[in-house]
Amino acid sequence: MVSQQFTVDLNKPLVFQVGHLGEAYQEWVHQPIISKERPRFFKSDFWEFCTCTAWWAVPLIWLPVVCWFVSMSVNMGHTFSQISLMVILGISIWTLIEYIVHRFLFHIETQSYWGNTMHYLIHGCHHKHPMDSLRLVFPPTATAVLLFPLWNLVKLFFPPSMAPALFGGGLLGYVIYDVTHYYLHHGQPTGDMPKKLKKYHMNHHYRILNKGFGVTSPLWDRVFGTLPGSKVAEKTR
């Protein structure tokens, strides 16, 4: 562990530097750089390419997969109403997963070299560079790796005819989440609800980081008591 004297050189690849911050990492990573200029992560062009994903790749790749999983349950004889309920249940389960992962994994406090490095890769970079448009959504390769154990988990707990539509609904929830997240950072909402959702998410980034963990909805923040107040006097961690 390197003490607070370590300084990150923003002109060099960042990923293998941030671990050296030690205990100072948490303070550093939550001081955002408000710039659309993309930081360099890796010296290797290949690994650098793997960290960048355009937002439209998420629906383009995963919506056909959603349709395929849902069609499996359709082919097993379920009615439209039954399929709709399964998909809605899948989306609902995703919103809870979204909240839990964001609160307890993405905002875990680290201080070891590898702990800081991994945190920076999975979420810290987003708080440090919130306007980096190509590192806002999850890379499809990483998503695919995670889908295999999740699919097996769903099959374990639900009947064979229900599992595909339920899983497809959860995957649709993920797609909605990633596209919404991108829009909240780079879109200019005009409707009342999107404006409130953008303000709610920007509060999480710039004012009170230990609340507002939902992205597509504040529902679970209300349930678990992490909904920010209407006025936040100061930024806290």
Rank of each mutant, 00 (worst) to 15 (best):
F41Y: 06
L14T: 05
K36M: 11
V18G: 08
T7P: 05
F41Q: 02
R40G: 10
I33W: 08
F16H: 12
Y25P: 13
G19D: 07
P32L: 02
P39C: 10
Q5W: 03
I33V: 13
K12G: 09
Q5V: 01
A24T: 04
T7F: 02
L21F: 02
G19Y: 08
H20E: 07
I34S: 15
Y25V: 15
F41M: 14
R40V: 12
P32G: 06
Q5D: 10
W28R: 11
S35A: 08
E23R: 10
E37P: 09
G22N: 15
K43W: 12
S35G: 07
E23K: 13
E37D: 12
Q31L: 10
D9R: 05
F6V: 05
V8L: 01
F16P: 10
F16R: 12
Q17V: 07
P13G: 11
V15P: 07
G22K: 12
W28Q: 13
L14V: 02
G22F: 14
R38M: 13
P13S: 08
L14D: 04
K43Q: 08
K36T: 12
H20C: 13
V8I: 02
Q17F: 00
P13F: 03
A24G: 14
Q31I: 07
K12P: 03
E37G: 03
P39L: 11
K43D: 09
Q26E: 14
Y25S: 09
I33R: 10
L10N: 04
L10V: 07
V15I: 13
P32V: 07
Q17R: 00
Q5S: 15
F42R: 06
F42M: 06
P13I: 14
V15D: 03
Q26C: 09
L14R: 04
G19N: 10
H30V: 03
Y25Q: 15
P39G: 07
F41S: 07
V18N: 00
S35K: 05
Q17D: 06
L14A: 05
L14Q: 06
Y25R: 11
E27M: 10
Q31C: 11
T7D: 02
